[in-house]
């Protein structure tokens, strides 16, 4: 079915037990402590498009990325891959092959003891895609060329490459199993801007050439604007606003989305005085009652303290905000 989303999260949640060891807990007389990294997220990634998640550290975006490829199992709710349960899909290697991930840290994402050609060929070998060694080598060379490296680079070790080149190797590894769905967890945030532009261009190019579906995680709104079709803004484990990219930037609705945009330094030097949002992100172990953003929100009212807002349609977007719903924005 063409309109089954590539990835769908249905009220998915992921909690981490961050309790102290049993003995200490008994002595201090405290209960278990749960960190609600992701707390009820629903979204769908359309085939061939890019769905991005933005938010500050601790908002749960990286946890969503790991839920999406099955590195974590959801504590509640469902994660569906191409219409079926993810855990079930991952049990079959021909389904697992269809999803891949690109990581943030180009220095930690490649095994330092392996040669580049073995790193890139790992998925090919794991899935038994090309049994013949010569064919594997040819494929690795092709992949290296595709990501803008030389086939001769295959015999080198990761430490011989710069950060940007390593990220290209990561992409080549991800592409080697001919995936359809790529989860990209902050793929450019460890890179310098000029290199970031190279990688973003490469990723866009590969997407249009191969029809890839991206789940793109970033904290950088400007980067997200360049690559996304749809954007979810996350705050403290929940989605605050989910909107088509252009709409989100043209008309940010959620007060948090507006605060985020307001916070970005102005490169155009219009000299406009920015009013930075006050306060800090609260702890996901003890989130505020009601709407998690209410202690920092200029529009907060009594209802925001008491009742947690659900995602509701507002124009072409979905917004979880009482003020927006009530037209107080």
């Amino acid at each position: 079915m063409a309109d089954t989303p590539m990835l769908e999260l249905r009220d998915a949640a992921r909690y981490f037990d961050v309790s102290r060891p049993l003995l200490q807990r008994v002595i201090a007389g405290e209960g278990k402590r749960l960190l609600r990294a992701v707390d009820g997220v629903s979204l769908a990634a359309t085939r061939g498009r890019t769905l991005s998640l933005v938010g500050e550290s601790g908002c749960g975006k990286s946890t969503v990325a790991r839920l999406a490829v099955g590195l974590y199992r959801p504590s509640a709710g469902q994660v569906m891959f191409d219409g079926r349960d993810l855990a079930e899909a991952r049990a079959a290697s021909d389904q697992r092959r269809r999803m891949q991930m690109i990581f943030q840290d180009p220095y930690a994402s490649l095994n330092p003891r392996w040669r580049v050609r073995d790193i890139i060929a790992e998925p090919i070998r794991a899935f038994g895609l090309l049994p013949d060694r010569a064919a594997q080598e040819a494929r690795v060379a092709e992949l290296l060329t595709q990501v803008g490296l030389s086939p001769l680079d295959g015999h080198k070790f990761p430490h011989e490459f710069s950060g940007g080149q390593r990220q290209r190797i990561s992409i080549a590894r991800a592409l080697s199993s001919n995936p359809e769905f790529l989860v990209c967890d902050e793929p450019t945030s460890a890179l310098d801007v000029s290199v970031q532009a190279q990688i973003l261009n490469l990723m866009k190019e590969l997407q249009s050439r191969m029809g890839l579906t991206y789940l793109f995680i970033s904290h950088n709104l400007a980067v997200v604007r360049q690559v996304s079709d749809q954007i979810g803004v996350m705050y403290l484990g929940r989605i605050a606003e989910l909107a088509p990219a252009e709409s989100l930037f043209r008309r940010p609705r959620h007060p948090y989305t507006r605060a985020l945009m307001e916070a970005i330094p102005d490169l155009d030097m219009t000299g406009r005085a920015r009013i930075p949002v006050g306060g800090e992100v609260p702890s996901p172990i003890n989130p505020p009652t009601g709407c998690a953003f209410h202690p920092r929100c200029p529009l907060a009212g009594p209802r925001c303290k008491a009742e947690r807002p659900e995602l509701k349609p507002a124009g072409d977007a979905m917004v979880a905000c009482h003020a927006v719903e009530e037209g107080r924005d």
Binding site: A197, N201, K204
Partner: peptide, 24 residues
């Protein structure tokens, strides 16, 4: 010029970012 050009703009979407090829 290259450095400034490769910064993704916040106020618009560009199809292809200006990039500086190679690395320092």
């Amino acid at each position: 010029v290259g450095l400034m050009g490769s910064i993704p703009p916040l106020d618009r979407r560009v199809e292809r970012l200006a990039q500086i090829d190679g690395a320092m």
